[in-house]
Structures are given as C-alpha cells and as structure tokens.
C-alpha cells in the first residue's frame, strides 16, 4: 500500500518554556495507512497532533499535512483533516443530529448533502435509533461513536484520533476498533491514532511510532521493531514487550 506522503515533518520542535514537549520530530505517513502513535502520558503525542492541525505553533521545524503547512494554511488543512480529541465534548442540550448538523454547517456542507451524510454516518456508527436523543444522556461509548461520525461528516482524507478507545468497555472497544479498521480499508482514509493501549494498536495498525519524552525513539512496522529489539527467532511477541524495552532504554 505504497501511496503518497500525507504527513511529513522536518525537525518539528515544540517547547513550553524550558520544557521540550516535542524534540526534532521527523516522521512520514503514507496515504491509506493506519499509524499508531504510542507513548506514555505526557510524551508529547497530543502536542504533535495539535501542531499538525495548526492549533499550536511549532517552536521550530516544519510540518506538512496533506501538502499544506498547518501553521500558514490551517484552513486548508482543517478542511480535509478530521480530529477527534481525547474525551470529545458535545453540546449536551442538543440531540445527536443537531450536533452533527452544526459541525457540518461549520464545514460549509450544504443542507441536503449534510442531511444525507448525517443519516449515513449515524447508521455506520450505529446511532440511527438514538439520533433524536439529547447527547447529554449518551453513554461514553455512544459519545465516542458520535465523535467518529462527527469527524467523518466532512469526508476527510486524514483523521487524527486521540485515545479513541479510552474509557470504553470491552465490547465498545471492539466495535470501535472494527469501525476504525473498516474506515481505513473501505474508505481509504489515513488514520493516525495516538494511544497507549498497546494490544489494540497491535491489532489495527500497519506501522507504529514510539514517542518518549518528546523523542521519537522508534518507527516502523511492528514486525520490524520486533526483529530489531527482540531478535528474529521470537514469533509470538507482543507490542507491549517491544514498547517496554524501548521505554526502559529511554
């Protein structure tokens, strides 16, 4: 699945005061892949995502997302890139459909098209029956699924998911992972997901990057990382073993 480069960074660095949140990050993501961005809490994953969206300015270095510099042309990037923040929020006093409609309007999607898309995505995430229920009454899993639908309303090329399965029950997690998987396979949407739930990442990601204390310590397909770190002979490795090894070294 070699495709065009959709995200590319060049020594991307972000400092908050004297603390370096992201240190000279160089990363390349190809179109259509599912990329897992791993790392402990506070490693700089969310900061990186915010820089990709132009919501935070990098201290130095450059990023290119779907061909545009997010600092200079955030508008162009945001039009085609979806972002599902961790613990996404909704307007609790509006129903699911109204929430989606508002986001569709902000994306300049005309009324007719947006109604069709809303129907389609509500169906896809399994919320059709709840579409007139106030979001305030939604469970955590339903909110997360609604968040996915909201991100996809604008038909993005690339989606950043920040901890998409955190706080979901096992069944909800499975359904979420299946959904993410099918998005990548059927809609050819590039997915960039940041997480520290390693078994889930192992299940769906083509490639992973491990970030610790702002440094990208490893990047590549999981098998390759396993080969490098654990030796060739081992067959039944888990991502967790690889990750812990990197973590201890850092």
């Amino acid at each position: 699945m070699k495709g065009e480069i959709i995200v590319e960074t060049e020594d991307l660095t972000k400092k908050y005061g004297s603390r370096t949140a992201v240190d000279h990050l160089n990363i390349k993501i190809e179109e259509g892949e599912v990329f897992g961005f791993l790392g402990p809490n506070g490693a700089g994953k969310t900061t990186t995502l915010l820089m990709f969206l132009g919501l935070t300015e990098p201290t130095s270095g450059r990023a290119k997302v779907i061909g545009f510099d997010p600092t200079r042309e955030p508008f162009k990037v945001k039009e085609k890139v979806g972002y599902l923040p961790e613990n996404v929020g909704f307007y609790d006093d509006m129903d699911a459909r109204q929430n989606l409609r508002y986001i569709a309007r902000l994306n300049r999607i005309s009324g007719e098209v947006s109604e069709k898309r809303i129907d389609y995505w509500l169906e896809m995430v399994g919320l059709s029956d709840e579409s007139t229920k106030k979001v305030g009454a939604f469970s955590k899993g339903m909110r997360q699924r609604l968040g996915i639908a909201e991100v996809l309303i604008k038909e993005p090329k690339l989606v950043f998911l920040d901890e998409p399965t955190i706080g979901l029950d096992p069944d909800g997690t499975n359904r979420m992972l299946d959904l993410i998987h099918s998005l990548s396979r059927e809609k050819n949407i590039t997915l960039f997901l940041s997480s520290h739930l390693l078994d889930q990442v192992q299940r769906i990601c083509d490639r992973v990057g491990i970030m610790i204390n702002g440094n990208l310590v490893a990047i590549g397909p999981i098998e390759e990382l396993a080969k490098n770190k654990l030796g060739l002979d081992q067959q039944d490795y888990t991502l967790e073993e690889i990750y812990m090894k990197y973590f201890k070294e850092a």
């Binding site: 969206l53 919501l55 923040p85 613990n87 929020g89 909704f90 307007y91 986001i103 902000l106």
Partner: peptide, 14 residues
C-alpha cells in the same frame, strides 16, 4: 468545560 472548544477550533473557521 464541555470540551467543545477544542473541537470548534479544529473546524475550518477562523
């Protein structure tokens, strides 16, 4: 507080 602001700013609006 309802965490909608970060969502709002990631839409294509100024």
């Amino acid at each position: 507080v309802s965490r909608t602001l970060s969502k709002l700013v990631s839409q294509p609006i100024f």
